[in-house]
């Protein structure tokens, strides 16, 4: 049965309890010291907002993004958007993974198996939401073990009848987890409720990506760092539906030439002696 993680951003107050619960359940270390996208720091950087995490990382599966907007009444609006893997219906990461380390659970989550992952980084580079990130562990001189990491929608909890850690901990009910139909109905009801006060209220994730995550946004998706339409990158389609089949066909043709060549030269050689140039003196 397809489940859905429903995030009602209008109810999010930015407490970041979901970030902590995620780290606790998935046993992920804090970002006290580290290197995020080349930026090195010793402590959590203060960047003037209530957002503490700047990007997904191998130890950060979820984060609450914050955006300040000028309100019409002269005040400010705070937008909080809890972000994690979208568990896309047509998952780019699944398409590109060369070792089938990424699969779909019966509940609809896109599950990344770190045991099978070889760290090629295809999913990292091609994800339309830039969610998966590589975990580096040095094993020797020049030898690094790399593992892609991302939210698995607490597949272990869900399979045992629990709800994901982020949904469980959310004190305002902004994060809910349940059957898709039920969540979609909740979202639609909420949009109607919010329309008078928030004309920009909309559902995100019903048609976009069509996955297991549904958002209720009060403003344009861009303010939450979400792409307006997230589709499988054209390069990936070109790769999977053109480059590979055409290339493999060409190699198949080459192998056929070898087989034909061996057969017609050795098993069934020409009857007449082939033409030879005059002997060279």
């Amino acid at each position: 049965m397809a489940k859905t993680l429903y995030i009602d951003t209008s109810k999010c107050m930015g407490c970041r309890g979901c970030e902590s619960a995620c780290k606790q359940w998935n046993d992920l270390p804090a970002n006290i010291k580290g290197d995020l996208k080349g930026e090195k720091f010793e402590f959590l950087p203060f960047n003037g907002t209530y957002q503490t995490k700047t990007a997904f990382a191998h130890q950060t599966y979820t984060m609450v993004k914050m955006q300040e907007l000028a309100a019409d009444d002269g005040g400010v609006k705070w937008l909080f958007g809890k972000r994690q893997c979208m568990h896309c219906a047509e998952a780019t990461c699944m398409m590109v993974c060369p070792v089938d380390a990424i699969s779909r659970t019966p509940e609809g989550a896109v599950y990344l198996d770190k045991e099978k992952c070889v760290g090629c980084g295809y999913c990292v580079q091609n994800c339309p939401f830039n969610v998966p990130q590589l975990d580096y562990n040095q094993k020797g001189i020049g030898i690094w073990e790399k593992k892609s990491s991302k939210c698995n929608l607490c597949a272990d909890r869900v399979q045992n009848g629990l709800i994901p850690a982020c949904a469980k901990t959310c004190p305002t009910g902004a994060i809910k987890f349940g059957d898709r139909e039920e969540m979609l109905a909740l979202a639609k009801e909420r949009v109607e409720q919010l329309k008078p006060k928030f004309p920009g209220a909309r559902i995100y994730g019903e048609k976009e990506v069509g996955g297991t995550v549904l958002y209720l946004l009060t403003e344009h998706p861009g303010y939450y760092g979400l792409p307006e339409s997230a589709v499988v990158p054209w390069q990936v389609r070109f790769w999977k539906y053109f480059a590979r089949p055409v290339g493999e066909l060409a190699v198949g043709g080459g192998l056929l030439v070898i087989l034909a060549g061996l057969f017609f030269n050795y098993v069934m050689p020409a009857k007449e002696t082939p033409h030879h140039a005059e002997g060279v003196k």
Partner: peptide
């Protein structure tokens, strides 16, 4: 970066296709 993957695949597969003929002719063709 995303474009580099299909380019790498197409180039190596194209070369392997040619290589089949190249190696057959140089090693096995009478």
């Amino acid at each position: 970066v995303r474009l580099a993957y299909p380019v790498h695949d197409l180039a190596f597969l194209g070369m392997c296709s040619m290589l089949c003929v190249h190696i057959f002719l140089s090693v096995a063709h009478p």
